[in-house]
């Protein structure tokens, strides 16, 4: 093998000292995204912490847990009464307590959707969206702007409904191991191919996110000058394209791996075990809540 000859510039020693003490610059667009992705990944992995606890919800059969929770979610979407939603919040709070889930853990997962819902519902509070009796008047001229009782009622109801539904689903996911969740879905009348596709999306998104994270760190390790936002955004877009290509290659390889082990278009899986008395009790209770939502 030919001997490697190093160019002269490679041999020059660096003599200047490293500068320190300058003002610390805030993270740029890429770094912020990277941090968000990394924290999301860490959070999802740590979800199993509550699922591993020996709480009441955790002790239920996964099928019963999913079906019962979905029944209460359906009740929230059907009801048109504040009292019903308030009742669901009480149930949610009790379930949280008896399942060993901390309020903060649940609140952290519900907060983004709460903020989003608030942003959506915000105009509904005002007289120009929901005319009615003024609850709080800001000004009359040149146009009247006020919050109305009717707007408050509609907006708050909408927010309560969405928050209760999101909280129920968040509690379900917190108290259910991901593996059990997908197994539970498989035994419900959901098409197996759909559940498999859903699981695989969840499974492989992490690998692709890891590629994205590594790619960003590799860039960061070689970036000295501060890049323009537009440059960062262009680079980010090019990485998304790369990840899309990688995901297509991976989909092909996974398909081959499945075919190699006998998959021929229809997934065959194990059935879950039998449900116990407490599972039926929970299903009865959640069905009762659903029943009440029609009348209340």
């Amino acid at each position: 093998m030919a001997q490697v000859t190093l160019p002269d510039w490679f041999k020059e020693a660096r003599v200047e000292p490293c500068l320190t003490g300058s003002k610390v610059k805030p993270p740029n667009f890429i770094e912020k995204n990277l941090n968000n992705i990394a924290s999301f990944m860490r959070e999802v992995v740590s979800l199993e912490e509550y699922a591993a606890k020996s709480g009441v919800l955790q002790s239920l059969d996964t099928r019963a847990r999913i079906t019962g929770m979905l029944a209460i979610v359906a009740a929230c979407s059907i009801t048109s009464r504040f009292a019903m939603l308030a009742g669901v919040f009480v149930i949610l709070f009790l379930m949280m307590l008896i399942s060993g889930v901390s309020f903060m853990a649940l609140a952290r997962r519900v907060l983004p959707s709460f903020v989003f819902t608030l942003a959506l519902a915000f105009p509904v509070f005002f007289n120009f969206m929901t005319p009615g009796t003024d609850a709080l008047k800001f000004f009359d001229t040149p146009v009247k702007v006020s919050i109305t009782y009717e707007g408050l009622s509609t907006g708050l109801f909408f927010m309560m409904r969405v928050t209760s539904m999101v909280s129920l689903v968040a509690l379900l996911l917190l108290t259910t191991r991901q593996a059990d969740f997908f197994k539970g879905l498989r035994t419900l009348p959901v098409p197996p191919l759909f559940v498999t596709a859903l699981f695989m999306t969840f499974r492989y998104i992490f690998i692709l996110l890891k590629i994205a994270e590594d790619s960003t760190l590799a860039r960061k390790s070689r970036t000295i000058a501060r890049t323009k936002l537009s440059e960062s955004q262009n680079w980010f877009a090019s990485r998304i394209t790369l990840i899309l290509k990688k995901s297509m290659n991976m989909a092909e390889e996974v398909n081959m791996a499945m075919a190699s082990r006998g998959f021929a278009g229809r997934i065959k899986t194990f059935d879950n075990g039998r449900m116990r008395g407490r599972d039926y009790l929970w299903l009865g209770f959640s069905s009762f809540v659903l029943f009440l939502s029609f009348g209340l």
């Binding site: 499974r203 390889e253 791996a257 082990r261 006998g262 899986t269 194990f270």
Partner: peptide
């Protein structure tokens, strides 16, 4: 496969081992 991530697509290790015989 050279890359195990490609080959492991089931929810648990048990399911993974059972996949082939079940198919």
């Amino acid at each position: 496969f050279p890359e195990p991530d490609v080959q492991l697509f089931c929810p648990t290790v048990f399911d993974e081992l059972a996949f082939g015989p079940l198919q």
